[in-house]
C-alpha cells in the first residue's frame, strides 16, 4: 500500500515536471510535426500507398488484393518506431541526471522509499508522457481507418501500438539507467542515443555473422520483436523480451543509485 502511494507520488511529480518543461513541448512539437508529415506522405503523396495501389490496378496486371490499411500501419509504425528511438534519449536524459544536479537525490535516498520504487514511478511518468505524444497520431489513424472500404479489425492496430509503447518503455528504461551515471543531461542523452544506435546496429551485425548468431541475436533484438508485433503476430516471447529489457533497466537504475552512495566523496 505504502509502496503504491510512493510510486504514485513519484509518478505524479515526474509527469507534472514533463508538462511544465519547455524541452518536453519542443520534443512533442517536433514529434507531432514529423509524424504528421510521414502520415501524409505515406498515405497521400505521389509515392504513397493509395497512389501505388491505384497504379497497379490501372496497369491491369493481376495482383493479389492489397490490404491498404494493414500495409499503411506496417510502414507508418515502422517509421514512428525509428522516430521514437530518436526522442527517447531526450525524454529519459533528465530522469536522474537532473536529480543529481539539483541534489534532490539526497531527499529520495533519505526517504523511506526503495530505489526500485522511485525508478518504477519515474518510468511510469515518462511512459505516460510518451503515450500522450501518441494521441494526435491516433486521431489521424482513426480518421484514415474509418475511411477504409472494409472495416479494420481493432486487434491489429491495438497490438501494433502496444508494441510501440513497449519498445519505447524498454528504451526509456535503459535510458533511465544511463541517466543515473552522470549529472549532465547532455551526456545522458548522448549515452542513450549511442545505445539506441547500437541496438539497431546489432541486427545488421548479426546478419553479417550468419547462423547461429543471427537467430540467437534476433531472439533478443528489440527491433525484431517490434516488427513482429506490428505485423500483427502475437508471440508471448516478444512480451517476455520487452518485459526483460524494462525490468533490466529498472534493476540497473536501482543498483546504480545504491552504488552512488559508496562512491560519493
Amino acid at each position: 500500500m505504502t509502496i503504491f502511494v510512493n510510486i504514485l507520488a513519484i509518478f505524479r511529480k515526474e509527469l507534472q515536471s514533463y508538462f511544465l518543461s519547455p524541452l518536453a513541448y519542443v520534443v512533442a512539437g517536433v514529434f507531432w510535426l514529423l509524424s504528421g508529415i510521414v502520415f501524409v506522405y505515406l498515405l497521400l503523396s505521389d509515392q504513397g500507398i493509395i497512389q501505388e495501389v491505384a497504379l497497379s490496378e490501372q496497369s491491369g496486371i493481376p495482383m493479389p488484393p492489397v490490404d491498404v490499411p494493414y500495409l499503411f500501419l506496417l510502414r507508418y509504425l515502422g517509421i514512428i518506431g525509428s522516430l521514437t528511438s530518436f526522442i527517447v534519449p531526450l525524454l529519459s536524459m533528465g530522469l536522474y541526471a537532473e536529480e543529481r544536479k539539483a541534489h534532490t537525490l539526497e531527499l529520495l535516498a533519505t526517504s523511506p522509499v526503495y530505489n526500485w520504487v522511485v525508478a518504477l514511478g519515474k518510468l511510469a511518468g515518462v511512459v505516460v508522457f510518451y503515450i500522450t505524444l501518441l494521441m494526435p497520431m491516433l486521431v489521424l489513424e482513426f480518421v484514415a481507418f474509418a475511411a477504409a472500404d472494409r472495416p479494420v479489425p481493432p486487434a491489429v492496430p491495438l497490438l501494433a501500438h502496444l508494441a510501440l509503447i513497449l519498445l519505447a518503455t524498454a528504451l526509456l528504461s535503459l535510458g533511465m539507467f544511463l541517466s543515473t551515471l552522470t549529472s549532465s543531461t547532455i551526456i545522458a542523452a548522448i549515452l542513450t542515443f549511442t545505445l539506441v544506435i547500437a541496438l539497431a546496429m546489432v541486427d545488421l551485425v548479426a546478419e553479417q555473422l550468419g547462423q547461429p548468431f543471427e537467430t540467437a541475436i534476433a531472439h533478443l533484438s528489440l527491433i525484431k520483436h517490434y516488427d513482429t508485433m506490428v505485423q500483427g503476430v502475437f508471440d508471448s516471447s516478444s512480451l517476455f523480451v520487452f518485459a526483460s529489457y524494462i525490468i533490466l533497466g529498472i534493476f540497473l537504475t536501482a543498483q546504480s543509485i545504491e552504488l552512488l552512495r559508496f562512491q560519493r566523496s
Binding site: T2, V5, N6, L8, A9, I10, R12, K13, Q16, S17, L20, S21, A102, H103, T104, L105, E106, L107, L108, T110, S111, P112, V113
Partner: peptide, 26 residues
C-alpha cells in the same frame, strides 16, 4: 533531514513540493 543544499524541485510550488515530500515520507 535537511542536507547542506536544500533538495528542492525548481518547477514545483512550495505547497506542491511539501505535499510530494509528505507522500514520500508516508
Amino acid at each position: 533531514y535537511l542536507p547542506e543544499t536544500p533538495p528542492l524541485y525548481e518547477d514545483m510550488t512550495v505547497r506542491g513540493y511539501l505535499f510530494f515530500v509528505a507522500r514520500l515520507k508516508g
